[in-house]
Each structure stands twice: as C-alpha cells, then as structure tokens.
Design a protein around this nucleic acid. Sequence first.
RNA 1: GCGGGAGUGGCGGAAUUUGGCAGACGCGCUGGACUUAGGAUCCAGUGCCGCAAGGCGUCCGGGUUCGAGUCCCGGCUCUCGCACCA
Length: 845
Amino acid sequence: MTDIPPRTAPSPRTVPDPSIPADPYDPRALETKWQARWERDATHHTDIAAGVRPYYALMMFPYPSAEGLHVGNLFAFTGNDIHGRFQRQQGHTVFEPMGYDAFGIHSENYALKMGVNPMVLIPRNIDNFRRQLKRAGLMVDWRRELSTTDPRYYRWTQWLFLQLYHRGLAYKKRAAVNWCPNDKTVLANEQVIAGECERCGARVEQRFLEQWFFRITEYAERLLNNLDALDWSESTKAAQRNWIGRSEGAEIVFRVQDIMAIAGAAAVPASTAEMTVSQTDIRVFTTRPDTVFGATYLVLAPEHPLVERITTDEERASVLAYRERSSRQDLVTRRVSKEKTGAFTGAYALNPATGEPIPVWIADYVLMDYGTGAIMAVPGHDERDFEFATAFGLPIVRVVAAPGDDERSPLPTAYTDSQDPARLVNSGRFSGLTVSAAKHAVVARLEDQQRGRAVVTYRLHDWCISRQRYWGPPIPIVYCDVCGPVPVPEQDLPVELPRVDDFTPDDSGISPLARVERWFKVSCPRCGGAARRETDVSDTFLDSAWYFLRYPSVDRDDVAFDPVLTDKWLPVDSYIGGNEHAVLHLLYSRFITMVLHDAQLLPFEEPFTRFRAHGTIVREGAKMSKSRGNVVNPDEYIEQWGADSFRAYLMFLGPYEEGGDFQDRGISGVRRYLDRLWSSAIDADRAGDADPAMLRKLHKTIRKVTQDIPALSYNTAIAAMMEYMKAMRTGERRAHINEVEPLVQLTAPFAPHIAEELWERFGHTRSVFDSGWPSFDPALAADELVTMAVQVNGKTRGTIQVAPEVDQAGALAAAMADAGVAKFVTTDPARVIFVPGRLLNIVVR
RNA sequence: GCGGGAGUGGCGGAAUUUGGCAGACGCGCUGGACUUAGGAUCCAGUGCCGCAAGGCGUCCGGGUUCGAGUCCCGGCUCUCGCACCA
C-alpha cells in the first residue's frame, strides 16, 4: 500500500485546528461499537421459526484456508450482504447464514505440510475467518454457522449417501482416476492443472481403481431442461448446457465378419428390445447417420472390451502393443498431440448400408467414455477421420456434396457442411436428400433392419464421489464376507473419522484409513460377522451439494432438514457465488435436490430460484496471485480505511457481475463520500423545511437506488448517491435533515456501521435496518422542467428547458428562440422529429 | 473447433433494457480558496483538435434511420468455460 491514510482524528497539537471537526468520522471506533451492539442486541439473529416474509439470501460458503479471507470472498459476501440488508429494509425476515467448506484435499495437503492433523488446524482457520468476517460487518446469524467437517453435519452427508444408495443411484465400479506418482495419492480433477499435480508438479498418471459413483447421468435430461426456466446468469446456464453436452444421433450396429474364424469367439445372438446384437457386433454412436454410406472403416477405443475378441492372431501383437502404449499415456498428452495413431485389428465388419466389409481399427482418438466407445469413420465428412484415413491410406468416399460439386472427384479435405444446400450423393436410394431429411430416413431404414436406432448421448458422466484420502466423511458402507456390501444403519451414523497421527497417502492407491485397523474392523450390521468398513471418503462436492438445506435446521440432530422449516425457507431466494462453480457445485446441488424431491423429501426440485455469478477482482489490471505479491489483504484495508469504506469501494469499482480493477487510490473516493455523509448528517439543519428542488433530486435518487440494488447494479447505485451528495452540498450549503436522513437509509446496506451511528444520532432507538426503506413519490421524482436536446439534422445544437408535457409546437418555438439553434435553421424545416420530454430534431434540406 | 461475455477519455467505469444531449460517478490531473504548512478540506475545470467559430470522436469496414456506442451484415482483438465428445 502506498497511499497515505486519511486523518481520522486531530493530530496532537497544542492549538486546535478549526478545520478539523470536533466530532470527526472515526470508522474504527464506530465499527467496533456497532459490531458489539449488534451482538448484544441480537440484531442479526433470524427468527427461523416465526419470522414473516422469509427471504433466504445465500452466498457460496468459503473454504477456510490458512491464508485467511481472500478479497474475492469478501467481494462475494458483501454483494450478498447488501442484497440481504436491502431485503430486510423492504420488510423481509432475511436469513443470511455462513459456513465453512472445510473438508477436502486443500486442507489435507496443508495439514500434511504442517504435520498437524486437520482436525486441529481447521478450527484455527475457521476462527480466523470468523474474526475477519465479523470485521466486515456482515448481517450473519452466527448461531447458525456450520462446518462440513463437524460430525453433526457430515452425519447427514452420510445419510444422504444412503438415500442415493437405497434408490439405486450409488454404485461401485472400476474406473480411471488421477494418480500422482510423487505424492502417492489420488487427485481430484480440480487438483490436476494441465496434466500435472498442483502440489508437486509431477505428471499425473491414470490408474484403475474401484470407485463409488452417483448416477447423475440418469438426471441429464431434467438437469438440462429445467435450465430454461431458471432465473440464473446466462453464462452459468450456458456452461451447464455445455457440460451436460446433449447430442442427438444414432446407434448403428456393424456385424463383424467371419466370427467363427476368430479363436474362442462364439456368435451367440442376443436380442434386445430394439435390435438384435450378437456378442461381436460393434455398436457405434454417430450424430451423422446420414453419412453411413461413407463409413469406410470402424474405430474402437483401445480399451474397448471387444478388441480382444475380434483381433486376429496375425495382428494381436501389434494391437496389444498399441493398447499398452496408449494406456500408459496420460489423458493430457493424448489431448496435446492430435497426431493420429492406431492399429488394425485384422477384423472386418459389414457396413449395413452398403453391405461392404470395412476394416476395424483401434485408435486413441476414440474415447471409451463417450458414446459407445466405437465410431464408424466417415473420412469424407469428418476432419479427424479424414486425418486418420490419410495417415493410414484408408479409402475416402464422398457421400455429401454441395450443388455443383463433382461427386466423383477426390475430396481435398473433409466436407463437414450439413446445412441446407448440402445433399446426399453416392448413397443409393437416399441420394438427393438433404442432410436433415437423410438423418431421419437412414435411421428409419436401420430401425426396420434392426441395425440401428435413434439415441441421445450426453457428455456428462456419472459423478465419481469416492476419494482415497483421509480428510472427508467416510462412506457409510461395511463389507461383509457373507452379506457383501451393507449400508451402515442410519441410527449408527455418523461413521466418525478417526483421529490419527499419520494420514499420509501411500503408493497402494488405498485410503490412509485402510491402515487404521481399530477403525475399519467392525462387525457386519446385518449378520454380526467379521466385516470391514469402506475406507474411502466422499468427495467435498457432496458436502457442498446440500449445505443450503442444513442452515435452517442446523440445530437439529434428529433430521437432516426439518420439513416445515425447509418448506418455509427454501428454495433459496437469492444465491450468489463465483462462476468457477458454474458446473460442478451448482450441477451437483441441483442433482441432489432432484433426488431428494423424487424421494419425496423436498417439495421442490430446483434449489436456487435465482443465481447470480459475481465477477472477479483484479488488481491494477493484473490477476492477483501470491507469486506476484499483489494480493489484497482485507485486514490491512479495513484497518486503514474502515470496513464501510472497503465494502463500498469493492461494490463501486465495477459492475458486480463483472468484477473490476482494484486500484489502491480508488478507495479514497468512497471514503470521501462517507466523510461527507458524516459531516452533512452531523451538521444537518433541523429547523425549517428542506429545499423542494433537493427533495425532487432525493426522490430520483431513491428511485434509482431502489431499482439498482435488486439488479446488483451496486456501482451505479453508489454513483447516484454520490451525485445526490454533491447536489446537496453545492456552494457549501448546509443540508437539511430531511434531505440527509433518507440518504443514510439508502447508504445503510453498503456501509452499515456509519448508517447505524448516524441513525442513532438522528434520535432513533431501533436499528436502521428495521427502519424500513424510504419510499419515493413518482410525482416528486418527476421534474418540473426537463432539458430537451435540440438537434439540427441530427447534430445537437443546443438544449431547451421546458415543461415535461410541452408539445411539438411549444418545443419548436423554444428551440427557435435559441440563437445557437436558430442560426443553423436557414430555411423552413423539411421535417421535425419530436420525442416528448427528450429531444427535438429539426431537419432542414 | 463449440459455447458464453466484452472492446467507450490518462485510469476504473456510465449510458446498450426502450436507437434520442456519449463520457454519469470515482480516481488522476490543472487552477484557485483556506493555511505557517498540506499528501487534509472546500471551489472550479478536465474526451481530442482549435484563439475562436467550429470540427472530430464509443475496435475496424459497410448498411438501415431524421438520428446509431445501442439495430443489421462482414471483419479484428481480448477474455472465460468445454474440447480428438464422433
């Protein structure tokens, strides 16, 4: 910080300085006073059971890092706090809770580094966070604070797991995970930065481990469709649509030729509802079934289960070698190098459209976890297939053409147009059809032949919720040799995390909890025999996927969330948070809410009625980072300028939903505003009447602020108040109390401490937040005279002061009386454009 | 590649919803007042060129219109999310 702090108290001098008021604005003293007063008077306590007109104003709860509160946290919380305080002044009972998302790998890694159990560290971090948050003057009901690491909380996280388990939405399967060979641990996706471990920088490997999953894909369609009706930031909805990644297409069956010649394979046809599938039929997914005549080969993902069965003896060695090579390659290098590699299996499949045999390849450009893990390659009309076919000399056939294209000439590149002028060629009876018509026709034909069907595929995967780590809620499952996996009975929850000294992850890929025998050795809840606990813990995102349900019921140990309170407070009226959680947290929360709705535990299926993503703050044009050393420490600024100034500056520096540039110098502007508010209020004239012109200005300001706050246009709301302040003080005039008092109420959400103090000094005994909100009189907010722009041929040549209801003739007369205008009007106007109250345009030829 | 957002003074940003005085508000800067002093406070000015009259100005190029930062067409740049997704 380079700025000189403002003087808040008289300097120690022998002669009193007359320019320093006897009673200056002293934010430090006053903020301490009011924070204590709020606590004493329970000003911020929410009457959960009996409060009227409930309004749930929620912000994403923080991860309590050891570094303390980040300015980004405070930006988010302050924005929510202003909204909440405003709603309270509108007469709502506002609930603005705070909690801590304290499980997870961040905390655990930090604890490992310090060599202290996170059970010890986390409470310290939380204490520090709470101290900082209180200093910022948030309207939080601290009695309802929660931490996800509290057994009273995660007991219900485990309960939630069981609800999904009982509904068949939790299952276990082997899956690829991120493995850091250096830290010997599984990493969450978020812990992998550009293919490297975020802690040590080692290249992350793929490992296959048994994992617990939630069947979120079963909800894909609902998660997608509901978005349309949600009042959420458009960018967030777009990110979710993107993530869900719905695509319409077809599944087509290719029969592998000459099955009996392949050793060990038995062609036993099995019939499904839609089509006949034999054990070596290859199902592919395509969004372009219209191009099936151009499918000149098939590609399977290297790890596709059919590979072993169809590979011929001659090709076995090279196929296995390729498979081995690609499995060692981590996902990231695979993405970086887009060079096409692959191996021929020796097998051929019949193209159901042409009847021709086409070769079956494996290649890592086909992903096992999307579609069916197999594609029909149409090199003529897909860029990747074109590259592959070129690299391996496979045939390229044109089956779509624009008018005028030579149907026989070789394609220089893949022709991927599927819009109107493009038509099918070389496609038998389908030639001549448009792409969209052909899609339907081809699928219909394949359905008749039982060789295909229309399907919808999603990019969304099932949610892997298990973590082979220590710092999380243990998954409440017990494995019994006799009974198999048995859920822990609800009355036995929580399954408490044992306190251990050594929670270092090891090379086994198994949770550190697997070393705690006294903990995992249990008897089977069903048969009483010897059994073993699940030693994986659940993903942090599960903790945060339901916390908003817990706040109103946080003092209840008999239920996760009380139905009556839930009905009263939820869904959340206003949710504010960062767009970095646009997909994971917000999608998981929606999913969990839908599941609980289906289980008839919640009357709604969307948790957040309104969501707004706040922007990010940069500093002096650059991203804040520890390495740059340009991180804003809220404590320092609050110390120097006061919490009120800091809050107001954060809200003023840019549009809330975009964030902005934190410039150290800028904070002095809002501080000056508060200084002036202070002195105007202290010196306010209590005799006589307010200036009518000023009252008109006041009512306009009230209208502007009242409209801007719900829209989160905090920067313009503050600008409007500053503008009013300037008007009130022009020519060093003394403001009348009736001009200042409502301004204090308007300022209150932004700068609560100073507002309370001034409100009290005005003689009120109750909190300014229970004083209501100034109303504006539209008649008063309207001007007596308006300034209209006068243009000649579209160029502004002057302004006129007229009554708002003046007609065209009146405005024209007034305009022509203006010499500056008249001199441009040399002939009779050819035309006059009149916008009442705004503008007059005189058109001369 | 797909999708979202954005380009406006020296700087942060208003006005884009509904086409109607571009630059609100703040920072910074300039001048002045008060003052022993000022990095405090207060007053005035501040888009660019020009003594002025006036001209020019919202990423670039077209268009619609009496009138375009705002609408339409084409392009450029930045930014965020997803990405060999078939």
